[in-house]
Simulated assay, not measured.
Amino acid sequence: MLQNGKIKGLIFDCYKTLIDIKTDEKSRETNERVSNWLLYQGVKIGPDRLREEYRWKVAGRLGNSGQKYPDIRIEEIFAEICAENAFREIDPYWLGIETAKVFRTASLRKLEAYPQSLRLIEKYRNVPKCIVSNAQRVFTEQELRFFGLYDRFNFVIMSSDHRIKKPDTRLFKMALDRLGLEPWEVLSIGDTPENDIYAPQSLGMNAMHIHSAWKYA
């Protein structure tokens, strides 16, 4: 996989590459759980309205970003919703963060680390590596830490930190700069061709689908 030493660094995607996940964010059950929790935090909003306000605010943020591949910070969306629907004094900043975590918990249906990916990371533990992922740091960092993955990488770049997402090649350029390597010295590994294969290849990087990479684990 390292092409006889030509590859000196690895960039991994997160979801469906390191972690297998399934969520149901749009279901009434998910939004009802969040709505019920918010009641005890001083926010009154029903599940259907919560779902619609979330959808409208996300669409508005993305549409007004001016970016080709924009991303949001989900905690900011929930902070707005909480501030607009509070029936007593609250701290929108703190509550936005906590609501994002509760929303993730309520929507989660499956969360597992791929054993093949764990073996792959262990095999190449001495090779500089990072994660570049379309993800929300507010809960993704905790999920990576839960599986003992976060500290096994030199650094982690998440789309929410920069408000842009893959296939925007700027995220890969950030990774290359921090790795201190040339594009042809780095291998991108992921599950989505547009994001993890074609985008890095356009910069001159090597790329491989995670299923192919598992053969080297």
Rank of each mutant, 00 (worst) to 15 (best):
F155D: 01
N134E: 04
D91C: 05
R145D: 10
I121P: 07
R152Y: 05
A83S: 11
Y93Q: 12
I121S: 03
E122G: 13
E98V: 05
Y93M: 06
A100S: 15
R125I: 08
E89Q: 14
K123S: 02
H162V: 00
W94N: 13
N154K: 10
V127H: 12
A86W: 11
P92G: 11
F103K: 04
A135D: 01
R119E: 11
E122Y: 09
R125P: 02
V138P: 07
D161R: 01
C130D: 04
L120N: 01
S133C: 08
I157A: 03
Y93E: 14
E98N: 12
R119Y: 01
A106I: 09
R163K: 13
F139A: 06
V127R: 05
I90S: 06
I164Q: 02
L111M: 13
C82G: 05
E143P: 01
T99Q: 06
N85S: 06
A106W: 01
Y150L: 14
I121Q: 06
N154E: 10
I164Y: 02
M158C: 04
A83D: 11
R125V: 10
A100V: 08
S107C: 08
Y124D: 03
Y93N: 10
E89H: 12
V138Y: 08
S133F: 07
R109F: 06
T140H: 15
C130G: 11
N154Y: 00
I97A: 12
P115F: 11
I131V: 15
A135Q: 06
P92C: 11
I121G: 02
Q142I: 04
K123D: 02
Y93T: 13
Y150G: 01
T105P: 00
F155N: 02
D151R: 06
V138A: 08
S160N: 01
I131S: 13
K101E: 06
R104D: 07
D151G: 04
Q116F: 12
K123N: 05
M158D: 00
G148F: 04
L111N: 09
R145S: 14
E141K: 14
F146M: 14
V102D: 00
Q136Y: 10
R109E: 15
F155P: 01
A135P: 03
V138H: 09
F139D: 03
E89F: 08
A86T: 03
P115L: 05
I164P: 04
H162T: 00
A83G: 00
